[in-house]
Design a protein around this nucleic acid. Structure first.
Lengths: 211, 211
DNA sequence: GGCTTTCAGATGACGTTGTCACCTGAACGA
DNA sequence: TCGTTCAGGTGACAACGTCATCTGAAAGCC
């Protein structure tokens, strides 16, 4: 019934689930391989049969999260019942929601582990490409190149402030959802074109020219 | 010559310096109280005479950084030779620069330690108030309430992407400085207020089209 | 002066952690 | 059937945070 490979895959998944749970509970420090093993029903040494070290286990969790977000963005983009602006708002809020509900996971997604600093950036590729496409559907290909990074960065920043609890400060007098909506309005503002050097009244700022 | 209090204060500073250095080198994991003590010329138990635990030491480092940024923002705001938009750009870039040059410190500044989750948010108060004032000088008091949080969040996001090395991905085709400039343009765009013709220092990487 | 108090620092010890070397036994291919 | 593979168990080690305890010199007081 349960082949060796199946049982090993089940253990691997149990390890990932247990580790993710511990991460949500108390951050990376709370993820001890002993406790992960215990929760997965194995002993402390067993995780080393599936992950070379603790860092790799955490990377795997972060990568999973990026992939899930990528699928979410993909489905969002394909939704025929939503306006482009609504999709962008929803995309921003999808990121913000992770920061709100799973702050430790969120920070993990934007960390760069010493062993393989680019691992999570690689895992983020699909999600960010989909997001960029959502932006392009709203503001066009050219503008998307200009605003894509800014929107990702801003969503990251809003979610980060949310994750660190700072947005709750009444000094700001706003919510993450408001910020996302304001951001979308700014980018998609009617007639909203960043002042061109030729047409604008002031100094235009252009993104670095692509090589 | 050196009283007891003076020597204790010197040790405390040496501990903070050593810890900050280790933080920059390898993140919070690399900050071991033993190594901190060794670099400060004392033994492993000595740090406990100045900080109740490791977490408090890290909080102290983060708070220091926030206070330094606060002073920087204050001086910036008082600078008579810079335009409001230039000041805002410079303020954004000041945050971004921390994320670029000291990524581990930057992440620490936006963390919320389990023991005292609001400690760093408190330390950030002055800096963020000054930043908000810079925003208000540019877009007015009413708009500042609307855009202040968004700007802080976006700066945080840009710096965070920079700190995690993701902005280096050629997919974005932009730089942190460009994003900051685009952001200022968006907020100060006609409809809000007209961006100033004089560009302040701090964004030399832009193509800078000038009529 | 002499005495007591205070406190930065040193030291030994303990439990926990990540990690390794080694062992065990069952599923697998031949 | 037999040897191989490999998930998992076990013992051990160094490093870590932290505490209890000790020491010695500066500081305060008479």
């Amino acid at each position: 019934m349960t082949s060796r490979a199946e049982s090993a895959a089940a253990t691997r998944r149990a390890l990932l689930d247990a580790a993710a749970e511990l991460l949500d509970l108390g951050g990376p420090e709370a993820v001890t391989l002993r406790e992960v093993g215990a929760r997965a029903g194995v002993t402390r040494g067993a995780p080393y049969r599936h992950f070379p070290d603790k860092e790799s286990l955490l990377i795997a969790i972060g990568s999973q999260a990026w992939e899930a977000l990528g699928r979410q963005m993909q489905e969002l983009r394909a939704d025929p019942h939503m306006s482009p602006a609504g999709k962008l708002r929803a995309g921003l809020i999808a990121m913000i929601e992770i920061g709100r509900s799973r702050p430790h996971l969120y920070k993990l997604m934007f960390s760069n582990p010493p062993g393989d600093p680019a691992a999570l950036a690689r895992a983020a590729q699909h999600s960010q490409t989909e997001f960029l496409a959502v932006v392009a559907d709203l503001v066009g290909e050219g503008e998307a190149r200009r605003y894509g990074a800014l929107l990702v960065a801003s969503a990251n920043g809003i979610a980060g402030l949310e994750a660190s609890g700072q947005l709750a400060d009444p000094k700001w007098g706003t919510t993450a959802e408001d910020l996302a909506a304001t951001l979308v309005d700014l980018v998609a503002r009617p007639g909203g074109r960043v002042p061109d050097p030729a047409s604008g009244p002031g100094h235009g700022s252009r993104p670095a020219p692509r090589p």
